[in-house]
Amino acid sequence: MLVPHKVCFRMSTLLVVFSLPMFAGFSQESVGSHTSSSGDAHNVSPCLLFEITLHGFLLWASLGLLMPLGVLVIRMSNRGERGIRLKIYFRAHAILQMLSVLLATAGAIMSIKNFSNSFNNHHQRIGLVLYGIIWLQALVGFLRPVRGSKGRSPWFFGHWTLGTAVSLLGVINIYSGLLAYSKKTSRSIRLWVILFTVEVSFISFFYLLQDKWEHIQKQGVILGNEPSRPI
């Protein structure tokens, strides 16, 4: 029987995968100084173009790559790993998440310093919420109770909830950021949307496969005196 948090995360993961085409058409509104009127879409200075591109790259590396990899790594430690391998998985998870927080913080500083933030659109509002949740998640991670203590279960649920929120909102905001970039520069984002969609689909598939891999391997093995059945 699946525990509730596993069921919820699987549903969330499937929601991301099957909602990708919808996100491709998400939010055509302007995004602060990233998107002004369509008439000046071509009047982007090389310096501003570099800053927008670097901001997008930092947030993709943080929320679109390192954060999901950190989730996959810690999931691998849940398959009965013990001793040195468990420590390796945990440290890899911590390093990936800390790097993700640092890159997201650098992207936030760039946004505050170089862009006009009126927070009148989805991209900036979601981004603001994400920055807060990311740092809250980092703080919660450092304050984890000892395994087996009474506070461990509620802590784990809170940590998982925040992580799920960051993963879902991060994917949505990367798509909306690509659309903002396209509107500001009039450049095609088709290739980047396709590549990111493939990446998210692969990570989601690998996440879902982790739970089933052991079961798949056991399909060709008869356990004990269990008779072979055609099911």
Rank of each mutant, 00 (worst) to 15 (best):
V3H: 11
V7E: 05
F9C: 03
T13H: 03
L14E: 02
L15K: 04
V16D: 05
L20H: 01
P21W: 14
F26A: 10
Q28K: 15
E29H: 09
S30P: 05
V31S: 10
G32L: 08
G32H: 06
S33G: 15
H34C: 08
S37E: 12
S37V: 13
S38L: 14
D40Q: 12
H42K: 14
S45C: 01
E51T: 06
I52D: 01
I52R: 02
S62L: 11
L65S: 03
L66V: 10
L69F: 00
L69H: 00
R79P: 00
R82A: 02
G83K: 12
L86K: 15
R91C: 01
R91W: 03
R91P: 00
Q97S: 09
L99I: 13
A104K: 03
T105I: 14
T105W: 13
A106N: 07
A106L: 15
A106D: 07
S111D: 08
K113V: 13
K113H: 08
N114K: 09
S118H: 10
N121G: 05
N121C: 11
G127V: 07
G127F: 07
L136V: 14
L139A: 14
L143W: 12
G148S: 12
S149L: 11
W155R: 02
F156D: 11
H159R: 06
G163N: 05
G163I: 04
G170A: 09
N173I: 10
I174E: 01
G177F: 01
L178G: 03
L179Y: 03
S182I: 06
T185S: 02
T185P: 00
I189V: 15
I189L: 11
V193N: 06
T197D: 06
V198L: 14
S201W: 00
S204A: 15
F205D: 04
F206M: 15
L209K: 09
Q210Y: 04
D211E: 09
Q219L: 15
V221Y: 00
L223I: 08
G224N: 15
N225I: 01
R229I: 03
I231A: 00
